[in-house]
Nucleic acid binder design. Structure first.
Length: 499
RNA sequence: GGGCCGUUAGCUCAGUCGGUAGAGCAACAGACUUUUAAUCUGUGGGUCGUUGGUUCGACUCCAACACGGCUCACCA
């Protein structure tokens, strides 16, 4: 049966015609509800005096999500954005004609506006006694089944509106996501950070090591790249004199999809002059604790996939080497040099080819990512990254091979990446050149040379610290979600030929 | 991209050894003025993901493809 014109759709279209012929405007837009369902429930649910309730006149609007009729009486459950509430229509009150030709023609899924008074049913449920009514929008397609709801994962993602209308927990989750973003924004603003918007279309993709999407601007006749990170633009703003900026927006990376990767994902990046990566750990810790408390009833322990995660600060701070010693049974000698790292790699069965393709720093990072990362369930800062894998980070004053950089891991995932920014234009130029060499050698993710960024640094960037926080993954942790698709309203899907 | 699993009515799911398809909800008709997954009686509804193959006969066995899920690889 065609999905476009099945029997159930035909029946509903016929009902709409019948309603129109009965004088019911089919798609009016002049109805205005005066009460949300939640406000009625909170105001009058405790009111026991039926005479009082009978004098309350209300005007509500919502979608019919349940509908049951008994000869001369109809009960329906109405859902608006705030709550579900029962309404009732009695034939003797609205008249036989209206009752039969209009109210009995309504279906689950229809949007209606209803006016009337309040009463309490035999079971004590606060209910709207409908005396006047408007059809606001007829549902021509049936809603998913009322008890099981919509379970098919593919349909939930492709037709998220169905998921939202029948699965209340999904609505709750996306409200929580919105609240998390709002809390982050509030935190940044309260610390005097300026929210900015920088380009999504970049002439040169930069700020991260990743493969970009390419698009084309016709009038300019040039290729542009969807941004992989806003970093280089935000730091240009620091050069320009803004000392605290942040941006919450999408990044795009042309890479594989997984339960933790969507081609477009949301990052919060912030940059602050006159600070360093050590102080940024404090800032990130405070920010995330602020968010966790606010959405978790002031508690700092959340449960994610049956695991408790305790956000109580301070969070451990380990160097990469210390993390390998603690979580990969490495000895201090093994993490001290390349020979030791190779022994460690062998012991953990890592692909032998990495020995030849990775430099010392990349090898250290590879060992960490493949062995340790997934074990960092509790919030943990990992610091002192190799300079070779940190092309935008400031070189440590103590060790020229180490960057003043940390990443934050929670639930086995990288949640944040931060560093003291490299503000030495000559060093930055050398780092870019090294990236270009890697790109020429076939590394598709290596960075481009961004001459304008170098020029900006040559005007002088104050000492600065910057951080990026993966919003989607943070939301996953705080909403007990297993897949990034569950926290993105319209996740990327392969197109499905409609026919 | 690799491996494994899945795709049957609008929705949620059964379908035995290969013999041409079932339930609940939804729909339709009827009964019913206090239900709330209302209940009861009756009726209709299917290109079994697509294409091919094996077979007298395929939802079932085989192959390819499409889409999805998990996972590995890449990444955040």
């Amino acid at each position: 049966m065609s999905n476009e014109e099945n029997h159930l759709v035909i029946v509903r279209k016929e009902k709409l015609s019948a309603l129109t012929q009965a004088g019911v405007p089919s798609y009016p837009n002049d109805y205005r509800p005066k009460n949300t369902l939640a406000s009625l429930l909170s105001q009058f649910d405790a009111q026991q005096d039926s005479d009082v309730l009978a004098k309350i006149t209300v005007a509500v609007a919502g979608r019919i999500v349940l509908y049951r009729h008994f000869g001369k009486l109809i009960f329906a459950t109405l859902r608006d954005a705030s709550a579900d509430m029962q309404i009732a229509v009695q034939r003797d009150e609205v008249g036989v004609e209206l009752y039969t030709n209009v109210f009995r023609k309504l279906d689950v899924g229809d949007w209606i506006g209803a006016e009337g008074t309040l009463f309490r049913t035999k079971t004590g449920e606060l209910t709207v006694r409908v005396v006047r009514f408007q059809l606001l929008a007829k549902a021509l397609r049936p809603l998913p089944e009322k008890w099981h709801g919509l379970e098919d994962i593919e349909t939930r993602y492709r037709q998220r509106y169905l998921d939202l209308m029948v699965n209340p927990e999904v609505r709750t989750l996306f409200k929580t996501r919105s609240k998390i973003v709002s809390l982050i924004r509030g935190f940044m603003e309260s610390h005097d950070f300026l929210e900015v918007e920088t380009p999504m279309m970049h002439p040169i993709p930069g700020g991260a090591v990743a493969r970009p999407f390419v698009t084309h601007h016709n009038a300019l006749d040039r290729d542009l790249y969807l941004r992989i990170a806003p970093e280089l633009y935000l730091k240009r703003l620091i050069v320009g004199g803004f000392e605290k900026v942040f941006e919450i927006n999408r990044n795009f990376r042309n890479e594989g999809l997984s339960t933790r990767h969507n081609p477009e994902f949301t990052m919060m990046e912030f940059y602050q002059a006159f600070t360093d990566y050590q102080e940024l750990m404090e800032r990130v810790e405070q920010l995330i604790c602020h968010v966790v408390r606010a959405i978790n009833h002031d508690h700092l322990v959340v449960h994610h996939q049956d695991r408790p995660i305790d956000f109580t600060p301070p969070w451990p701070r380990l160097t990469l080497q210390e993390a390998l010693i603690r979580f990969a049974e490495a000895t201090p000698q093994e993490v001290a040099n390349r020979e030791g790292l190779l022994i460690l790699a062998d012991r953990h069965g890592l692909d032998p080819k990495i020995k030849n393709t990775l430099d010392d720093g990349a090898l250290l990072l590879e060992l960490f990512e493949s062995i340790v990362e997934e074990k960092l369930i509790q919030p943990t800062f990992i610091k002192d990254y190799p300079i070779s894998v940190s092309p935008l980070s400031r070189r440590s004053s103590q060790n020229p091979l180490v960057a003043d950089r940390f990443e934050l891991f929670i639930g086995g995932w990288e949640i944040a990446n931060a560093f003291s920014e490299l503000n030495d234009p000559q060093d930055q130029e050398e780092r870019f050149l090294a990236q270009v060499q890697a790109k020429d050698a076939g590394n598709l993710e290596a960075m481009h040379f961004d001459a304008d960024y170098i020029r900006a640094l040559e005007y002088g960037m104050p000492p600065t610290g910057g951080a990026g926080i993966g919003i989607d993954r943070l939301v996953m942790l705080l909403t007990n979600s297993a897949a990034i698709r569950d926290v993105i309203l319209f996740p990327q899907m392969r197109s499905k030929d409609p026919g």
